[in-house]
Amino acid sequence: MPEELAATAHQFEDLAQQHEADELGMWVFLGTEVMFFGGLFLGYTVYRHVYFGAFEAGSHLLDLLLGAVNTSVLIASSFTMALSVYAAQKGRKKTLITCLILTMILGSVFLGIKGVEYGQKFHHHLVPGYDFNPEGNFPAHMSLYFSFYFIMTGMHALHMIVGEGLLLVVLILAAKNRFTAAHHATVEVVGIYWHFVDIIWIFLFPLLYLIGGR
């Protein structure tokens, strides 16, 4: 297949080897991402253990309903991403483009809701290092909880933004007819990344929003 040959980079023997390398590369990269967030999970675990009361109190200041809605939005975006890969595998360009756009919209909705939540925190003086002065009585060192809240969700949002950028690239490539049913590793690899960012949130949600019962 001359088309396949053209798509194979010179260092590879064939397209299959190239796909395998791309996919393994993405998994290894996600390994580094796990360890990157792992440092944050470690800090979280330590301080949650030391200042449990403060973490519980801080957690109850979050909007659980908004968090749950946002989790669902992100899961929906993962679903449409999975459908994008499906469409690419079947070589259906239109479906692929639709699903990619849907994924990007859902991702933006997630970031929007996150922004609303951030706004609330600023409004309630719950931003450590900038304006931490919540009303009423609260346990000592509750600011540490909010430090982790902002760093963890902020890092996650940063990864979402990167993901949106990657999706945009895939979208443009799809519009340019760069993918075929046989050759669409880019869609799969970006998909794996997007799902991974989803998984991080699946853990952030209980860790941040669900400390102790309300």
């Binding site: 309903l65 669902s72 209980p206």
Partner: peptide
């Protein structure tokens, strides 16, 4: 899978309201 994920999100949120 999608529906299961949504249901589980609902369950975990509901449990969050109970101590």
């Amino acid at each position: 899978i999608f529906i299961t994920l949504l249901v589980m999100t609902g369950v975990t949120t509901a449990v969050g309201y109970v101590d």
